[in-house]
Every structure is written in structure tokens, then in C-alpha cells.
């Protein structure tokens, strides 16, 4: 049976992990390769690296990092942050990334999704959508959730799927950082409406939240950052909990 996936997300700036991590066994908590290896050894099903480096010339560091990660780990990983052109994608895939994730650039120029999917195949194109509730309606936001757009989230999700996205990474900005649980309602709505997998993100605070997003939220995968980095929810424990709760996961 196809399993639900558990995905830790690592924020990267200038080739280093940012946001604190609290992994005692790491020699260098800022080294993304070492952290990636630790997660892969713990049983993470996939990894996401989100590059928040501002300057263009420092993005070369990202491709170098991708190569180091690809050499070190034997599970799939996605790279996102600041990707806007087919050439950007080519560089990262050739460096060894399995998938890339685009966000603002897709909003700005939706045709780029078709272009990337045609060139590299849908399987490696993830479209990240940041959503926020505005007076009862869900709107797509950009710039880390600060800037609202006129796109309604459900309609945009359908459009990106039609244009050839292989997966949707759906982050609820209302839930992100709250540790009060994932946005199950909109995740379920989008996952049910589309025939591509949906990765839920934002709001994970405890193990039950993962069970909820897989059952009520109908998510195919769940992503989280700080609760994994600070070992509030260790991946091996999370997996054995989900297994006991009847969720199909990889042991």
C-alpha cells in the first residue's frame, strides 16, 4: 500500500540551516548535509530545502549544496525558494535535486508551470501555495504570506494541476507557527478535488495533528519544521504512533 509521507523542511540561507535546530548528535547544527543525513537515518520519507538567500550570486551556493546533499542521502528531496526560470530548474535537477518547488514566480507567470512540466516532467514540479483566510474566503498570498493576491486558493490549485504541476505544497498561513494543527478543511477540499498529491504544511504541534491531516485532511504527505528540529516530535515515535493509529506509513 502507498504510504503517507512525513517531510521535514529545512530553511537554508547562504548554504547554512537557519532557524535553530536541536539535534544533540550533530557536530554542526548549521550544516544542512549533516541534518539531512540525520533525518534520513531517522526514517524521514522525503526532505524539503527552502532557500531564503536573498542575493542572486549566492544562489550558486545552493546548487553546490544540492550536490552535497544528493551525494550524502538516499531519499528524495525537493528544493524551493527563488526559482523562476526553466534554467534555474535545470541547474538544480542536474545538481541532484529530485523535485523543485515554485511559488511566487508561478503566481506572477503561471505559464512557467506548463513550461517546466513540459521540459522536465510533472513528477518533479511542485507548486507551493500559501493560503490565508480573508473574510471567509481563501486567497493565495505571496512573500511569505504577507502579500495577498486576487487568486482564490481552490481555483488556483486546480489551475496549477491543469497546467502540469505534479504535487501541491499547501501552507496555511493562518495555521503556520500556531502548533494548533494543520488546516484540515482546505487541505481536504483541495486534495479531494484534484488528482495530484497534496502536501499539507503549517500548524503541526503534536502527533495527533498528523493523524488528523491524513484522515480528515486527506493529505498525501505532511510537512513540518521546528517540531522536528527541536525534537518535540521525533520522527521514529511519530511513525510508530501513526502505525498504531492505522495510518499506512513506511517503517
Amino acid at each position: 500500500m502507498l504510504t503517507k509521507r512525513i517531510i521535514p523542511c529545512l530553511d537554508i540561507k547562504d548554504g547554512r540551516t537557519v532557524k535553530g535546530v536541536n539535534f544533540v548528535q550533530l557536530r554542526d547544527a548549521g550544516d544542512p548535509v549533516e541534518l539531512a543525513k540525520a533525518y534520513s537515518d531517522e526514517g524521514a520519507d522525503e526532505l524539503v530545502f527552502l532557500d531564503i538567500t536573498a542575493t542572486v550570486d549566492k544562489r550558486k551556493t545552493l546548487a553546490e549544496l544540492v550536490t552535497k546533499v544528493a551525494k550524502a542521502i538516499n531519499i528524495p528531496f525537493t528544493v524551493g525558494g527563488g526559482i523562476s526560470t526553466v534554467e534555474d530548474v535545470k541547474v538544480l535537477l542536474n545538481a541532484g535535486a529530485d523535485k523543485i518547488s515554485i511559488n511566487s514566480s508561478a503566481v506572477k507567470n503561471p505559464g512557467v508551470i506548463d513550461e517546466m512540466a513540459r521540459e522536465f516532467g510533472s513528477q518533479c514540479i511542485v507548486v507551493a501555495i500559501d493560503t490565508r483566510d480573508v473574510d471567509g474566503t481563501d486567497y493565495v498570498h505571496t512573500h511569505g504570506g504577507r502579500k495577498p493576491t486576487l487568486l482564490q486558493t481552490q481555483a488556483w490549485a486546480k489551475e496549477v494541476a491543469d497546467r502540469g504541476a505534479g504535487e501541491i505544497l499547501l501552507t496555511s498561513m493562518d495555521h503556520d507557527g500556531t502548533k494548533a494543527g494543520f488546516a484540515n478543511e482546505i487541505t481536504s477540499e483541495i486534495s479531494s478535488a484534484l488528482s495530484i498529491p497534496v502536501i499539507a504544511s503549517g500548524g503541526a504541534g503534536n502527533m495527533a495533528h498528523f493523524k488528523d491531516v491524513f484522515t480528515f485532511g486527506k493529505a498525501d504527505a505532511a510537512l513540518a519544521a521546528s517540531i522536528f528540529h527541536f525534537k518535540e516530535v521525533p520522527i521514529p515515535e511519530l511513525k510508530s504512533y501513526l502505525d498504531q493509529e492505522g495510518i499506512v506509513i513506511r517503517k
Binding site: 504510504t3 510533472s122 513528477q123 504535487e167 484534484l194 513506511r250
Partner: peptide
């Protein structure tokens, strides 16, 4: 060909045994 797109999505992506 998925019988039910809610349960079975295509491509088949992820870990299976």
C-alpha cells in the same frame, strides 16, 4: 487509470511495498 481520483492519484508517487 484511477477508479476513484480521491483515493488513487496519478502519478503513483511515494513509498510503497
Amino acid at each position: 487509470i484511477p477508479e476513484n481520483s480521491q483515493e488513487f492519484k496519478v502519478p503513483h508517487v511515494g513509498w510503497n511495498d
